[in-house]
Simulated scan of single mutants.
Amino acid sequence: MDVWEKLYNEAKALYNPHEVSPFVYAEHVVSALEAENGQIYTGYCFEATCGVFHLCAERAATFNMYQQSKQTKIKRIIAFRNEAPSGVGGMPCGACREFLMQLNAENADTEILVDYNTRETITLNELIPNWWGKERI
């Protein structure tokens, strides 16, 4: 089993889309990441209609990593809905891209799985090649 299959299986176990209330929807996008030390952390999307609270699966997994280990560097990350990524649908949103870069500038080298079957990846740096925060580092 390669690392992508392991990440996929860890995330897939969390997939359970449902309404928490008429205003909150959860577990419809899942994510797993491999931290710098090889540990795997997972998370799922949790969103509310109030507009103030929306936590993507990638940020949830990253928050869990930091909360449990104080690590900030991510080697690899996968995110998906009901099936493995098979193109651009597995890309982190802009807020997630920005958060990963702000957490640790070395996350520019994080591999993001684009296509599960071919194991095609892209780096965060390729998604944000001219990140504004480089000037502050």
Rank of each mutant, 00 (worst) to 15 (best):
Q102C: 04
G87A: 08
R119A: 10
S31D: 04
A79F: 02
I122C: 05
V29K: 10
G133W: 12
A48V: 02
G94M: 08
A108H: 04
K6Q: 12
F23S: 14
Q67F: 07
P22N: 12
T110P: 07
S69M: 05
A11E: 04
I40H: 02
V30M: 13
Y8Q: 00
M101P: 01
N104V: 04
A35T: 06
G89M: 15
N64V: 02
R136L: 15
T110W: 02
C45K: 15
G38F: 02
I77N: 02
V114T: 03
Y66E: 09
E120K: 10
E111N: 02
R119I: 10
R119C: 10
I112S: 01
L113T: 01
V88M: 14
A26C: 08
K134F: 14
V3S: 11
E27R: 15
N125G: 15
A11H: 02
R59Q: 13
E120I: 01
A79H: 07
F99P: 00
A11Q: 04
V20I: 12
Q71P: 06
I74T: 12
G133D: 06
D115Y: 00
M65L: 09
R136Q: 13
Q67Y: 13
L55S: 01
P92T: 07
I78A: 02
A35E: 08
N107V: 03
A84S: 12
G90Y: 09
Q67C: 00
M91Q: 12
T110C: 05
C45N: 11
L100T: 09
N130W: 04
P129M: 05
M65Q: 10
A95S: 11
A105K: 08
E5L: 11
A13Y: 00
E106R: 06
T118D: 09
V29E: 10
L33D: 02
E47H: 11
L127V: 02
V3M: 13
S69C: 08
E36N: 06
C96N: 07
W131N: 03
M65V: 06
F99A: 06
A35H: 05
A105E: 11
A61G: 08
E27L: 11
N125A: 14
Q39Y: 00
A57I: 12
F53E: 11
Q39D: 13
T118M: 08
A35Y: 05
